[in-house]
Write a protein that binds this DNA or RNA. Sequence first.
DNA 1: TTTCTAAAGTCAATATAGTTGACATGAGAA
DNA 2: TTCTCATGTCAACTATATTGACTTTAGAAA
Lengths: 155, 155
Amino acid sequence: MPKTSQAAGLHRASLKKLHDLDAALELMYYGWRGMTLEADEYLAKLGLSRPHHRILYVVARRPDIAIGSLLEILGISKQALNRPLNLLLERKLLTSKRSPEQHRSKLLRLTDAGQRIEKNASDHERKVLRAAFDRVGEPGAAAWMAVMETIADNN
Amino acid sequence: MPKTSQAAGLHRASLKKLHDLDAALELMYYGWRGMTLEADEYLAKLGLSRPHHRILYVVARRPDIAIGSLLEILGISKQALNRPLNLLLERKLLTSKRSPEQHRSKLLRLTDAGQRIEKNASDHERKVLRAAFDRVGEPGAAAWMAVMETIADNN
DNA sequence: TTTCTAAAGTCAATATAGTTGACATGAGAA
DNA sequence: TTCTCATGTCAACTATATTGACTTTAGAAA
């Protein structure tokens, strides 16, 4: 667990701006950290981290997802998925069972405990977003979304 | 170098939204990737990566910075800084010399080649931001900044 | 001159999050 | 029975970080 978040945060405005968009560029970096900071601390207390949260997040929104589809969505190799996924199964935050008709695939679901943890972690992140959106009102929030969509689709 | 960026990008909208702010939450994730994708590809061609870029970015905006201050701003340990910093010195993208009066510290500066690479990499990121801001106009851009500042300062 | 201290550098061990390649297993389909 | 798909696992590797324990460099103080 890096201790960098706080130290780095202290220096958010300490660099000379060489270009027009340098401030925006830095905000993208510190924005990600700001949004995930509390969620990561919460997860760390449970012995979990970002990869576990990503798995829980996706499975929460795609109950009965097969492992292959999960891999596609996460964009990682099955070997990389292996450890965090098995931890979640061992801890009974996820269940896996063969599909009734498609016996080849295994379907993943959150247990109640898994749902609770997914919600708590995501709530930390949504809380930060909520506070920021409230400060700029509905039109500002819509503008933020529009900007982020354009940026996100750059690939 | 992970191959995940493209695959993950394809699935940006594929999850059911359980909460109001889920879309925003996902946009933060994919926004970071969208902004850094081309810059990372450019850096990879040169055998460099994000840590190198961060060093170049900071030194460009703080010429004659001491190594200790650089560590503080980056928020990493000196052992973690060691490898990428030495690579940049070996490649002559950075110079390091003892300060005239403060002989204890070493002052870092970009060479012309270092400046060029820093600018190219950051230009890729700024280009993505520019395009997105242009689509929403000045007020939208200001709203985006306001939202990100609130989020970034959450620590 | 010796000693103290600050800044930087280095060595080793460890963690985390990923990669590729090769191979094994489980279970339906031909 | 064999083929194939989905999954699981083993091993080796890479990149980016950590902590701890030193050493080196060079000015400051005794």
